[in-house]
Design a protein around this nucleic acid. Structure first.
Lengths: 243, 243
DNA sequence: CGCCAGGTTGATTTCGCTCAAGCAATGTGG
DNA sequence: CCACATTGCTTGAGCGAAATCAACCTGGCG
């Protein structure tokens, strides 16, 4: 399973081949050696779990390719997709640091590559590199502000506005620009997950999508979305949201 | 303004008189001296702002007494109360650590006492005490899990269930137990803020409160709430929420 | 005394949930 | 290769919940 570290797209590679977006940069020689021996790279198919809610923590993971969904479940079968993780993101570090079981599941939303770094390695790295703890802190704060934004939107926006906002975020991440100025996305998530992210039912999402089609601001075909004019879509909400 | 450090209720006192609940414990002599010279204690009246959204950060604050609301505003006049801070909680550390302006306002929800520690002091303490950074990290992770819980509830519970849940949390924090087994709370927040925490309108909160009265599970009189049987109230949601 | 903020209540309309059916794509076993 | 189940999505009808707009009440305060 262990793979030697390779260079990728000219980025310096310590782990996960994601260059400066990763938390795993700027280590000294010994730390780098430690890291390469303690990490394992693995590919996941669509729907495969990286870790499951309730499981004990066994180290942290670092997304190297694809998209990973962070999901919370309850025992009534409810599922909410809380956030999306992309290459460079570290996941599972919270349960590692608090010494508790995973409070969420992490699921590959398409073919993905995720590295695993075992507990002993992380502990050693953390002890020798205070900067790593600081990077975790920055990451945690970033996620917290993201969660606060989310809570604010949940409380103030209509379902349609929430969906539009989500689409704009996804366009930023997954969008392909076309020559005529339109953009396309392959949604990484199902309608049900879209609904859970908005805080509504999947039927409602279907109906809102229908209205977006009628209004001509977006065209949906399965998970393929085309937005003729992103600025026009953004205009729906930028009168309501400030930076 | 500076006050000498006093002992309070037998707790060791470094700052904020809150003993082991505080982030500001277990410092060595020099750090303690630095802290006592760099901190300032201040009392706030109900409604006074500790810091305001958009302001540049000027250090961190530590709640010593009372209750502080963390609020986000937009320029359409929407206001959402994101969380409540209690004695022992450190606030304003995020904008300090990210070097950005405050993304939320902090407002005394009643007569409160809050200590302020200036930037230079924090920076020096952080540099000399890696454990302090770790405590910030733990705090941040705790707030993040709290935010995730919130997002999950927003997406899965009905408004009534959300209000019941909020009442139960507030009973745990502010409740007074009576001899007959009932409990009372003085709500620290207005109905409008209650509504923003639930993600609905204040009129709706009024109506839900009316229904709770009819069902006999809670009695409201202004901000005074009496709950005859907390277990009965909890039964409304504990079939829906797991630990 | 009049004003005002915070709260309640009512009437009306809109919206979203629920239940249910239908449909297309995919998979499976005989 | 077909009959059949399954999954993800859409659509419809009915109903209940909540938003909206508005009136009104109450206590505090100048």
């Amino acid at each position: 399973m262990a793979q030697t570290c390779i260079r990728h797209a000219g980025q310096p590679c310590v782990v996960c081949h994601v260059g400066r977006r990763s938390d795993w940069q700027d280590f000294d020689q010994t730390a780098s050696a430690l890291l390469s021996s303690g990490r394992r790279r693995r590919e996941y198919g669509s729907g495969e779990l990286v870790f499951a809610q309730g499981e004990p923590n066994d180290g942290v993971h670092c997304v190297s390719g694809g998209t990973v969904g962070i999901r919370r479940l309850d025992d009534n079968g409810n599922s909410v997709l809380l956030e999306l993780a992309y290459p460079g993101d570290t996941i599972g570090y919270r349960s590692f640091l608090t010494g508790s079981e995973h409070k969420t599941s992490a699921e590959a939303l398409g073919p993905s590559v995720v590295c695993h770094i075992d507990r002993a390695t992380i502990a050693a790295l953390l002890a020798g590199n205070p900067a790593l703890g600081l990077r975790f802190l920055k990451r945690s704060i970033g996620e917290l502000e993201h969660a606060h934004d989310m809570m604010f939107r949940q409380a103030t926006l209509s379902n349609r506005h929430k969906l539009v906002h989500l689409l704009l975020v996804l366009v930023g991440r997954h969008g392909r620009r076309h020559s005529n100025g339109s953009q396309s996305i392959d949604l990484p998530v199902s309608r049900r997950d879209l609904a859970s992210m908005i805080g509504t039912r999947h039927e409602t999402i279907s109906r809102i999508i229908g209205r977006l089609e009628i209004d001509g601001v977006a065209h949906f075909s399965g998970r393929q979305v085309t937005i003729p004019n992103v600025a026009m879509l953004a205009a729906e909400i930028d009168c309501l949201i400030q930076a």
